[in-house]
Amino acid sequence: GMDVRRLKVNELREELQRRGLDTRGLKAELAERLQAALSGPSSG
């Protein structure tokens, strides 16, 4: 899988935006949010 901790802030935001998620917050928050999205149930 993707290691969200290795991504830069702008990369985290890009991935979040692609999934329609909130791109605001600290890098740690963005990484946590993206990780949750990646490990969560895949819809679609």
Rank of each mutant, 00 (worst) to 15 (best):
V4N: 03
Q35E: 10
G20R: 04
K27E: 06
D3I: 08
T23H: 08
R6M: 11
G44L: 12
M2K: 09
P41S: 13
E15N: 03
E32I: 10
G20M: 03
G20E: 03
P41Q: 13
T23N: 06
R19G: 01
R24G: 08
P41V: 13
E15Y: 06
S42M: 14
R24H: 11
R5G: 12
L7M: 15
G40K: 12
A28R: 12
P41Y: 12
N10F: 10
L38E: 03
R24K: 10
L12G: 00
L38M: 09
R18V: 05
R6I: 09
Q17K: 15
Q35C: 13
L30T: 01
G20Y: 03
L21M: 07
G40R: 12
V9F: 10
T23W: 09
L16D: 01
A28F: 09
G25Q: 01
L26A: 14
A37S: 06
A28Y: 09
Q17I: 06
G25F: 02
V4G: 04
E32K: 14
G20F: 04
L34R: 00
A37Y: 11
V4W: 07
L26T: 15
R6Q: 11
G25M: 01
G20I: 01
L38N: 04
R13E: 03
L7T: 02
L16Y: 01
P41D: 12
R18S: 05
E11G: 04
L21I: 05
A28P: 07
G25D: 01
L38H: 03
R33T: 02
L34A: 00
V9I: 15
G40L: 12
L12S: 00
L38F: 06
D3L: 09
L30M: 06
L16R: 00
A37M: 05
P41G: 13
R19S: 02
D22A: 06
Q35W: 14
V4K: 03
L16K: 00
A28N: 09
S39G: 12
G44R: 08
Q17W: 11
E29P: 01
L7W: 10
R24N: 11
K8R: 11
A37E: 05
A37K: 03
L21K: 03
D3G: 06
Q35S: 10
R13V: 08
N10L: 07
R19T: 01
R24E: 07
R19Y: 05
P41W: 12
R13L: 06
K27G: 05
E14R: 15
R24T: 13
D3N: 10
G20C: 07
A28Q: 10
G40M: 12
A36N: 10
E29I: 07
M2L: 15
K27F: 10
S43V: 12
Q17G: 10
R13A: 03
A31G: 04
G25L: 01
A36T: 08
R19A: 03
S43K: 10
A28S: 10
G40T: 11
K8W: 05
D22L: 05
E32Y: 08
R19N: 03
R6P: 05
Q17R: 15
E11Y: 04
L30K: 01
E32P: 02
L34N: 00
G1E: 12
L16S: 01
L30A: 01
Q35I: 15
S42V: 12
D3R: 07
E32Q: 14
L26W: 06
E32A: 15
L12D: 00
S39L: 13
S42H: 12
V4A: 06
L21H: 04
L26S: 15
R5K: 13
A37H: 09
E29T: 08
T23F: 07
A28C: 06
G1T: 14
L34T: 00
Q35T: 09
E15M: 08
K27S: 04
E15A: 09
A37V: 08
S43H: 13
G25Y: 01
L7S: 02
A36I: 09
E32N: 11
S42P: 13
L38V: 07
A36M: 09
L34D: 00
D3M: 07
D22F: 02
R13F: 05
R13H: 03
R18G: 03
V4I: 12
R6S: 12
R6L: 13
D3E: 08
L21E: 03
L38Q: 04
S39E: 10
A31W: 08
E15D: 02
G44W: 11
G20H: 06
L12Q: 00
E11D: 06
S42A: 13
R18L: 08
G40I: 10
R33L: 03
M2S: 07
L34M: 03
L34F: 02
K8N: 15
M2I: 15
